[in-house]
Write a protein that binds this DNA or RNA. Structure first.
Ligand code: FES
Ligand code: FES
Lengths: 146, 146
DNA sequence: GGAATAAAGGATATATTTATCTTTAATTAA
DNA sequence: TTAATTAAAGATAAATATATCCTTTATTCC
């Protein structure tokens, strides 16, 4: 559904949002440890998110990543778009050049219904809201051994 | 959503179902031409589908692939499972080892709702039904230039 | 200014997916 | 029986995604 890079991006942002806002910066090492991701690969992803203005960063000691507490809400859609692009969210499920009602592929009707649900969900859910649920302990970013 | 291999598989099967049943066999070359896919790569996919018993094949002149007209309906789910496996249809959207209500990831609630829709759609839609809509001209397997 | 810290950037390596090419086996028809 | 046809199988190549390593730049603290 989402690439690994995109999964890391979503988890990283939720973690950052849950921890920042009080002026503290979250280091890459901390992020990678908390979301259980390869540190250097995560760095690449953070660079993309940073360039796109989705997250802010500061270099040097006590530096790291942060999201302003009063920053506008970040819909999941923005994150997926930044990392995976929109084609797989809007394109034809069977790979036709254009998804259209005009020349629909065999699964167009059924698929587009599901896809619209997904898009709706990605637009409605925000990093900040999900971060809140993480903070309150309702959700987790990694699982302890069974 | 689906791998290219899986998209080719679905299109190939729908095409075969729409053309076979009268005892005729559909050649690989014909399939690749009709669904606009690389022939040799498509061959690999057909081999998997054949081994899994999802499609039948005959070698030699006039040989090719076919689906019995009175064969049991093939849900899309079977095809996706054969090619892409089930993990991406049942696993956690953020990549946690287990998707569970017990230790849910931040998007579990929202994601699992969408995922269930997708699963429902994959179980309900069958190759044969979609082949019928293709035959009646309601849908297409490739698009003509704009 | 110098040492330490942490992100940014570039280069490389590994794994996986997608695609192509060649050979083999089965079947048909002449 | 021979030639032609077609799927099966194996080997290789190309493209992409994932992961790691090394260097550079900005910042802080002493
Ligand atoms: S044309 Fe394939 S999903 Fe719309
Ligand atoms: S735990 Fe992540 S989708 Fe269920």
């Amino acid at each position: 559904m989402f690439s690994k890079a995109c999964k890391y991006a979503i988890k990283a942002l939720i973690y950052i949002a849950s921890r920042s806002g009080d002026g503290s910066n979250i280091s890459l090492r901390d992020i990678a440890a908390q979301i259980d991701s390869p540190e250097h690969f995560t760095a690449k992803i953070m660079q993309i998110l940073s360039k796109q203005g989705i997250v802010s960063s500061i270099k040097g000691p006590n530096g790291g990543f942060y999201i302003e507490r009063n920053a506008p809400a970040i819909p999941l859609f923005e994150v997926v778009r930044a990392i995976d692009g929109v084609h797989h969210l809007t394109g034809c499920g069977l790979g036709l050049k254009n998804c259209s009602e005009d020349q629909p592929c065999p699964i167009h009707r059924e698929f587009s219904e599901v896809r619209n649900r997904l898009l709706q969900m990605l637009h409605q859910s925000t990093i900040q809201q999900l971060a809140g649920e993480l903070t309150s302990g309702q959700t987790v970013l990694k699982q302890m051994a069974l």
